[in-house]
């Protein structure tokens, strides 16, 4: 990055450290903090959407849909999330390619050949001629979907609980005004449930933040990947040889996560205060008293 870093083996002390910390690999490390935050911001709304669908499915009047919703929301209670992460991306990838093979490939060539899973080049996802960022993006897309499925199930539990917690009287009032069930849902139930859902969603966000290192297991080059890669001892084949420094890199990551969770908590405190305004809850009551 700097001109003085051209020959790092001649440098010493602070100059060496400065060059070391600004090497191309370190820039990728710093960039990966952004990747983690970006993935969080992408995953959270998608998971919430999945959760919404799950919660509505559980409350559905159509029996098969209700059963689907129940299985979906309860699966995260029995199975560790990590099993899903090892499983879902591969299943999705092969599922997509299998579907595409049905459309684009010669049906006489089997897809499973012994232990191999081979589709014709036209059905590959992404095509092997696609530029590298497409491949990378596809890998991240699979990771995001895997996260969204798991955390969507958590969110569905939270949202369903919150919908049950909305005082019945509020819904009855709406019905008395002649609203249809759909109108009650849209105008009363969903706006009112947020204050009840917030504690659960706050928790869920915290769990999601703390689950991001698992992206590493999904093969995304996140902060954990780079910390391990940079921290390991380096021989002279590298420009900056050094002993095993992984502990320091992991401590830096620890600080990053502590800041993330601490900051999130501050933000959620503010939202909680906003949402409690005028609600028939203890917090809402306290605000009313404080105002008068």
């Amino acid at each position: 990055m700097f001109a003085s870093c051209a020959d790092p083996k001649t440098l010493e002390g602070l100059a060496w450290l400065l060059c070391y910390l600004s090497s191309g690999k370190h820039l990728l490390f710093y960039l990966s903090f952004g990747t983690v935050i970006l993935l969080l911001l992408i995953t959270a709304p998608i998971a919430l959407l999945f959760g919404f669908g799950g919660a509505l499915a559980v409350r559905s009047r159509i029996t098969p849909l209700r059963w689907f919703g129940k299985i979906y929301t309860s699966m995260v209670r029995g199975i560790p999330d990590i099993i899903f992460f090892l499983f879902v991306p591969i299943a999705l990838d092969q599922g997509f390619e299998w579907l595409r093979a049905k459309v684009y490939c010669d049906p006489s060539v089997p897809i499973r050949q012994g232990n191999e899973f081979v589709v014709c080049p036209a059905a590959k996802l992404p095509l092997s001629t696609a530029p590298e960022w497409v491949h990378q993006g596809y890998g991240i897309f699979l990771a995001v979907v895997a996260f969204a499925i798991v955390f969507g199930a958590f969110a569905a539990n939270v949202l369903n609980g919150a919908m049950n917690a909305v005082p019945r009287a509020q819904l009855e009032t709406a019905e008395a005004y002649g609203m249809s069930p759909r109108q009650v849902n849209r105008r009363i139930l969903i706006p009112q449930m947020w204050t009840y859902a917030l504690p659960g969603l706050t928790n869920l966000w915290m769990i999601l933040v703390k689950a991001t290192p698992l992206l590493f297991i999904l093969g995304v080059e996140d902060i954990v990947y780079w910390a391990r890669e940079l921290g390991g001892s380096k021989t002279n084949a590298y420009a900056y040889p050094h002993p095993d420094w992984r502990l320091y890199y992991f401590l830096a990551i620890l600080v990053f996560y502590l800041l993330m969770t601490w900051g999130s908590e501050r933000i959620f405190d503010r939202i909680r205060a906003r949402l409690s305004h005028g609600q028939a809850t203890a917090a809402g009551e306290a605000m009313r008293k404080a105002a008068t």
């Binding site: 502990l247 996560y257 969770t261």
Partner: peptide, 16 residues
């Protein structure tokens, strides 16, 4: 510290 950071990272740090 233990609630605010991922268990995964705690494992790594503990081992190192």
């Amino acid at each position: 510290v233990f609630r605010g950071s991922p268990l995964f990272i705690q494992f790594f740090i503990a081992y190192e």
